[in-house]
């Protein structure tokens, strides 16, 4: 979890040079200043990453993986789920305007999840689109508040080639 490990090293490019003996002490004192400055920067960077990671990292799971771990993930914890829209499952509540659909695992189509999305879907959202939704799971329904949708892969087309 420490992305900044390599940094201190990188922060001191090309500053060593041939030194002659008499300058040694002075050079050392100069170097110490640079090392101290580098250390401060490295620590600050590390702190920034750690703080930022805490607030924004979420599990990313396929639907099959999610069902495997369901017990530990239900409740308030935010998760990201990847799947595919089951054709014909997109429904829209005329009153609340909520969009709901069934998402299936990309590999195992028997593993599905009911997803309710409370915002405007992107244009790329349609039957068979690959979706990544962020939200929480309660009572058998996944309530998403972020959605990423990608058009069905161009290579799944029926057009055969040799």
């Amino acid at each position: 979890m420490t992305p900044t490990q390599e940094k201190p090293k990188q922060a001191q490019p090309g500053q060593t040079g041939p030194r002659n003996y008499g300058q040694h002490r002075k050079a050392n004192a100069g170097n110490r200043k640079f090392i101290a400055a580098g250390a401060v920067i490295a620590l600050a960077a590390l702190a920034i990453v750690v703080v930022a990671m805490q607030g924004s990292s979420v599990y990313y799971l396929t639907i099959a993986e999610f069902h495997g771990k369901q017990a530990s993930l239900a409740g308030d914890k935010e998760v990201r789920l990847a799947g595919k829209v089951v054709p014909g499952s997109i429904a829209r509540d005329e009153r609340t305007k909520e969009v709901s659909f069934l998402a299936m695992d990309k590999v195992d189509a028997t593993q599905t999840m009911k997803v309710v999305y409370n915002k405007i879907v992107p244009d790329t959202f349609k039957d068979e689109a690959e979706v990544v939704v962020t939200g929480t799971y309660t009572n058998g329904v996944f309530s998403a508040n972020e959605m990423l949708a990608k058009c069905p892969s161009k290579y799944s087309s029926t057009a055969e080639s040799n």
Partner: peptide, 22 residues
Amino acid sequence: PLVSQITTGVKTEVKAGYFVQT
């Protein structure tokens, strides 16, 4: 996501907020 999958076996992603904050 790749790093966490290799190290912990579970994929973890960061949300956009991470990039803004860093």
